[in-house]
């Protein structure tokens, strides 16, 4: 039996561009061929709560939004939690950042994924309640979904 992988879409689906991760995860799910060894999860949370979703998987992909302020809206980034750690110290916008969460899991001998990859897109508005992303961010949804499938070595069911 193939080793299970997980794709986690992070974001708030009623906060404009912040919903990107959720929408992209839904797109991944649509494109997954039947029987693919991948679970898709939508989550509006972070830190320790995120750890619950990561445990037990060998590999995880997290889809999120990012606001560097210097990138082009809709630009796609791909990086690892270690890269993130360089930029956010051990502080976090929530209770724990991802790198620290994973390190805590490893420290406590919990089954954290060996490989975690983050796909994020530069967003414009993540503070206005509303359904749906702006045009540039929406355009990145199918692109990121495809990149995630390629990354996981899975051929798209619709492609």
């Amino acid at each position: 039996m193939a080793v299970k992988k997980v794709v986690i879409g992070l974001g708030n689906p009623i906060l404009s561009d912040d919903g990107f991760g959720i929408f992209a995860a839904r797109e991944v799910e649509c494109r997954l061929p039947a029987g693919a060894p991948v679970d898709v999860v939508e989550a509006s949370l972070a830190g320790l709560k995120l750890l619950d979703f990561l445990l037990g998987y060998r590999e995880a992909v997290i889809i999120d939004s990012v606001k560097t302020g210097s990138g082009r809206v809709g630009e796609i980034y791909c990086f690892t939690p270690e890269a993130l750690r360089e930029t956010v110290r051990l502080a976090s916008v929530h209770d724990l950042n991802l790198a620290t969460t994973l390190e805590l899991g490893r420290m406590l001998n919990l089954p954290v994924p060996e490989q975690v990859t983050i796909f994020a897109v530069e967003v414009a508005d993540n503070t206005t309640f509303g359904e749906g992303c702006c045009r540039e961010v929406a355009a990145a949804i199918p692109q990121v979904a495809e990149q995630v499938l390629v990354h996981l070595g899975i051929e798209s069911a619709t492609g």
């Binding site: 992070l10 974001g11 708030n12 906060l15 912040d18 509006s44 949370l45 972070a46 999120d64 939004s65 990012v66 606001k67 560097t68 302020g69 210097s70 990138g71 993130l84 930029t87 956010v88 110290r89 502080a91 916008v93 929530h94 994020a120 967003v123 993540n126 503070t127």
Partner: peptide, 9 residues
């Protein structure tokens, strides 16, 4: 928002 900060915090 929960978006990842891109700058030094």
């Amino acid at each position: 928002t929960h978006s990842l900060p891109g700058r030094t915090p």
